[in-house]
Design a protein around this nucleic acid. Structure first.
Length: 561
RNA sequence: GCGCCUGUAGCUCAAUUAGGAUAGAGCAACGGACUUCUAAUCCGUAGGCUGGGGGUUCGACUCCCUCCGGGCGCGCCA
């Protein structure tokens, strides 16, 4: 229900609880918070609370008895919005609202439009979400796609819930990996020139390396044929970095993912931000020297063991720049840091938290959201995904095969922390098995109804909106649909609090189902102009909510299919 | 060995912010509904000891312990 109604009822219940407890002189140090839920079963009313059951816990009294007392108190007040209030089951209190309260929801949706579903539970708190962040040594694959979808949707959901969100991509463009990248491309280039060379031991095997070499050869001919390898490698490294990074940006763009910031690891060194942080930790004695290297006392802060920050050879580790990077995030004013990582990085969480504690920040303000792996299924078989050999399905491939909307929905429809399957054949099929089309179809159907309304001179202009009689919406399916719509804001809030975008995806499917059911049962546009107007009003609200929910997931709402 | 994730219908997954009412959808199976605003839809039937066992309580898919099965980690790699 709308927020005001909810708060009002909660207050009402709270007072009734206090009153009934006072009267019976129960000792109640702490009354639990009133929780109002919307029951799945329509027979359980529009709203329900389990407060009596919770009270029974520490009052040691029959919950139904308490519930009865509370209901009596509320009944005395003669609330205008309540149709019926009763005790049911083990001691639940079910509330039935007057239909005008439900209808009011539709007006709210109409007025708020694209903002319906937004709330301010985030209170403007600044959150940084960092995701994808793969080093520019190769193309994005399917696994990165899931991280991208989750991060992007989460950012949108948190924004809708009133947080001030910044998204960032951390470019790991410093260190050995980049050198190996340069060497790999150079090696392929020299092969193209007909030289017999040994491919670097840990070199990148993927085909894209060869194609980069080819590009260079076409553009620069044999300019780098001399044996001054060291001088050339710098060029190859830089060339490959730029090119691959650009490809990553392009892929993400087609995937509908845009970042507020791209933050380069190298830039931390250029602006000298790593060294001071290490020195600070050294001064505070959280870093010590051992076997020629510098170690962070990570074990002291909850990690399994201490970790090297500066190697024996004087080179900082990846961890060192990561500490500086996260320190920088806090210094930029973010209160909560969310890093979205692939599940294979979970071992890194304790280390990172230890560092954050050592820096003097609250370790709870940093959270790593682990995204479990996706298993790709093609023709009923698992598609192997070995990164090492350079054999993997790229995000680009996937997008070419199934398109942005389908890919995003498939990544988002299941909880990010359970490992799930991605069936390419279902994703590609334009059939009933495909939930994306099911949802989009609902939207397209509404557009079609609106079009038909126009042909019959039934249009929702301001005048009609004024005259509309929402009481005509009294069918069971209509009231269920309205209840579903009313729930949207709660769903967004919950999805934001739990950092679980899939909740919005599930909701979308449920809303679409509710609409399809209604659609087959009743005609919106009919001879009866008043009824048509009211129903058109209703489906227009469904359209708005479908659109809002889809946009939180970054999926298109097509007018025609 | 230690750590993180996970086990729910034949298959793929849900289950409402610290436990709540009869554990829900989709697909597949079977039987129905198109002169209609798009049948990419809807209605019905069938399908479950929520991996096993114990515990906590008015009440457990949810919390605790234990065992079994699957995935992933445990570098002076990133």
């Amino acid at each position: 229900m709308n927020n005001k109604v909810n708060e009002h009822l909660k207050q009402l219940i709270r007072e009734a609880v206090q009153k009934s407890i006072q009267d019976k002189s129960f000792d109640s140090k702490e009354i639990p918070a009133v929780i109002l839920t919307t029951p799945k079963n329509p027979e359980h009313g529009h709203l329900s609370t389990n407060i009596a059951l919770q009270l029974a816990g520490f009052l040691k009294i029959n919950p139904r008895q308490i519930a009865n007392l509370i209901v009596q108190e509320i009944d005395k007040k003669n609330e205008t919005i309540i149709k019926k209030i009763e005790v049911a089951g083990a001691g639940f209190i079910n509330i039935y609202l007057k239909s005008t309260v439900l209808h009011q929801v539709l007006n709210e949706i109409m007025i708020k439009g694209e903002h319906f579903g937004c709330s301010d539970i985030g209170k403007g708190e600044r959150i940084m979400i960092e995701f994808v962040s793969v080093n520019p040594t190769g193309p994005l694959h399917v696994g990165h796609g899931k991280c991208a979808a989750v991060g992007d949707a989460l950012a949108k959901i948190l924004k809708a819930a009133g947080y001030k969100v910044t998204t960032e991509y951390y470019i790991n463009d410093h260190g050995k990996q980049m050198d190996i990248l340069g060497e790999s491309v150079l090696a392929r280039y020299r092969e193209l020139l007909g030289e017999e060379i040994e491919f670097p031991e840990n070199g990148y095997q993927g085909e894209y390396i060869g194609s980069l070499a080819k590009d260079i050869k076409e553009e620069y001919q044999e300019q780098f044929s001399d044996k001054d390898v060291l001088a050339n490698i710098q060029f190859f490294k830089e060339y490959a970095r730029k090119k691959i990074l650009q490809d990553i940006r392009d892929d993400l763009n087609t995937f509908g993912v845009e970042f507020d910031n791209w933050f380069s690891e190298e830039s931390l060194y250029i602006s000298n931000k790593v060294q001071p942080v290490i020195e600070q930790l050294l001064k505070e004695k959280y870093v010590y020297r051992h076997k020629g290297a510098l170690w962070l006392k990570a074990a002291e802060f909850g990690d399994e063991k201490d970790r090297v920050v500066i190697r024996e050879n004087g080179e900082p580790t990846y961890f060192a720049s990561d500490i500086a990077y996260h320190d920088d995030k806090y210094k930029r004013g973010f209160k909560t840091l969310i890093d979205i990582w692939g599940a294979d990085h979970h071992g890194y969480i304790k280390r990172m938290k230890a560092a954050i504690k050592a820096l003097g920040y609250n370790p709870d303000s940093f959270q790593a959201l682990l995204v479990q792996f996706v298993t790709l299924i093609k023709e009923g078989k698992i598609v192997g995904m070995s990164t090492r050999g350079g054999k993997f399905v790229t995000l680009k491939n996937l997008l070419e095969e199934v398109g942005k909307d389908v890919a995003r929905y498939f990544f988002l429809m299941h909880s990010h922390d359970s490992h799930t399957e991605f069936d390419l054949d279902i994703a590609k099929s334009q059939s009933m098995e495909n939930p994306v089309f099911y949802i989009q179809y609902a939207y397209a159907r509404i557009c079609s109804i609106i079009k038909k309304g126009k042909l019959n001179d039934i249009v929702l202009d301001d005048k009609i909106k004024e005259e509309i009689n929402l009481e005509l919406l009294n069918k069971k399916e209509e009231l269920e649909l309205i209840k579903k719509l009313a729930n949207f804001r709660k769903v967004v809030e919950k999805s934001a609090i739990n950092w679980k975008p899939h909740m919005v995806a599930s909701y979308l499917h449920e809303l679409a189902a509710e609409f399809h059911k209604y659609y087959t049962e009743y005609k919106v546009i009919s001879e009866d102009k008043n009824l048509s107007g009211a129903r058109l009003y209703l489906v227009h609200c469904v359209k708005i909510v479908l659109e809002n929910a889809l946009s939180l997931l970054g999926i298109k709402a097509p007018e025609k299919m």
